[in-house]
């Protein structure tokens, strides 16, 4: 992990975010189907329909959080690439300073160092924001897991439809339970060392 550069880290974060968005889309579609099916099942599946609607809202909220995360991580690409550019400039200035001891070069080097420090602060801020949103998503994920479990219970009251409803509830759990692991992976990528 320590050797991973920041661009690679951002790519891995983005890929994980995309996976969560895909799962959220699946949950949304499944919820739509579940709502339609519970209507067909009538009174016995009333609770199943209500909970499925909750899961639909959950998937929409999760997608919104993920979109914010994606925007933040794309923004960090600009900071990281600027940092890399200034690092190159710094290296060249350091080499020049050693060879010439020119005061102007020393001044530029000081400016470049200041710029690097600012960029590092900016990137740390982005990573902190990302971590905060991931925390929110993890909380939402736990809530989703609880609803999915309730759905399994509701499925047992589904009369003639209980088997298909139980199948849907299991599918919900499968998608929702995969999310915490992915979010933890993102948290892992966010635990970075200093840029320098």
């Amino acid at each position: 992990m320590a050797a991973m550069n920041d661009l690679m880290r951002i790519v891995r974060i983005n890929e994980n975010i995309k996976t969560v968005v895909t799962q959220a889309r699946r949950i949304n579609l499944l919820a739509l189907n579940a709502i339609l099916l519970s209507r067909r099942a009538g009174k016995l599946a009333l609770g199943f329909g209500v909970i499925s609607d909750e899961l639909r809202t959950f998937s929409k909220d999760l997608t919104t959080t993920m979109r914010v995360l994606m925007t933040l991580s794309y923004g960090s690409v600009a900071i990281v690439s600027q940092f890399q550019r200034y690092s190159h400039v710094n290296y060249i200035l350091q080499t020049t300073e050693k060879a010439s001891h020119h005061q102007l070069v020393r001044q530029r080097l000081a400016f470049s160092n200041k710029k690097l420090a600012e960029l590092e602060t900016g990137l740390n801020k982005v990573y902190q924001d990302l971590a905060r949103y991931i925390d929110d998503a993890e909380t939402a994920g736990r809530f989703g897991s609880v609803i999915a479990r309730s759905l399994k219970i509701e499925a047992t009251y589904g009369g003639g439809f209980h088997q298909i409803l139980a199948q849907i509830a299991t599918e919900f759990s499968y998608y929702i339970d995969s999310i915490p692991g992915i979010l933890q992976q993102i948290q892992g990528y966010l635990k970075r060392n200093s840029l320098r």
Binding site: L7, I10, V11, E15, Y74, V77, A78, S81
Partner: peptide, 11 residues
């Protein structure tokens, strides 16, 4: 880089 990341995996 950001545009590519949105559509595909740059890796």
């Amino acid at each position: 880089f950001a545009a590519i990341s949105a559509a595909a995996n740059p890796e």
